[in-house]
């Protein structure tokens, strides 16, 4: 996973609530066995018409937002399906940071696992940042994870919260499986607790 330290980039405004993961990447594109290549179909239903032509009204088809690396939305971003294809599609499009008043839990989690920083900020602040974003290519936002601030084009800074463990993993670009495997002895000891004796093992000989 790529590190996330500081990002200065174009932000795309999407002033919509409840953007679900089916919108971010429709199910028909989930047939891949890879993590990459989904960016071209991110937001497919809104981005393309029935013939596959770009819809000029959709923000990510407009300049400079085709090059956006930050997405700003309203409440409950990423609700619905747990598909990690949603953050993969965003990442493959070029998005490294998503900002919203609230997120669905699984999507929020999936972002961190892929080097995308999700930031929760109050709706009024999201509105201010959307106003910044609407000013186009000269209006970049800087997201500084080390200092936990967003720097607006006017120089004003907005502080944000992030879970310390997840911040550390992002700043270092760490794989959490390796970290957990370092606790192998504790996991093994847990598995041998007498209170767990009731949990059956699954072997396929016992069923058809």
């Amino acid at each position: 996973m790529d590190k996330f330290t500081e990002l200065t980039a174009i932000a795309a405004p999407m002033p919509t609530e409840n953007i679900d993961t089916d919108q971010i990447i429709p199910a028909r594109f989930l047939k891949t066995i890879q993590r990459t290549g989904l960016g071209k179909n991110a937001f497919a239903a809104q981005r393309y018409d029935a013939d596959g032509n770009e819809n000029p009204d959709f923000v990510l088809n407009q300049e400079p937002y085709r090059h956006a690396e930050i997405l700003i939305t309203y409440d409950n971003l990423g609700c619905g399906s747990s598909r990690e294809h949603a953050p993969w599609a965003l990442l493959d499009f070029g998005i490294r940071c998503v900002i919203a008043p609230s997120f669905a839990d699984i999507f929020f989690n999936n972002c961190f696992k892929n080097g995308i920083l999700p930031i929760r900020l109050p709706r009024e602040i999201c509105d201010e940042l959307m106003d910044d974003a609407r000013q186009g290519s000269n209006s970049r936002l800087t997201v500084d994870l080390e200092r936990q601030v967003i720097v607006r084009p006017n120089g004003e800074t907005i502080a944000f919260d992030v879970d310390p463990f997840r911040r550390h993993m992002l700043l270092e670009g760490l794989d959490d499986i390796g970290q957990t495997m370092a606790h192998d002895a504790e996991i093994t000891s847990f598995e041998h607790r007498p209170s767990r004796a009731w949990v059956p093992s699954i072997t396929m000989g016992t069923s058809k």
């Binding site: 993590r35 699984i106 989690n109 463990f165 996991i187």
Partner: peptide, 20 residues
């Protein structure tokens, strides 16, 4: 509960998940 694919890999490898 539902998890993403990175967590699927985490559970396959460690039989655990990281959560608050």
């Amino acid at each position: 509960f539902g998890i993403g694919t990175s967590e699927v890999e985490h559970v396959l490898a460690t039989q655990t998940i990281l959560q608050k």
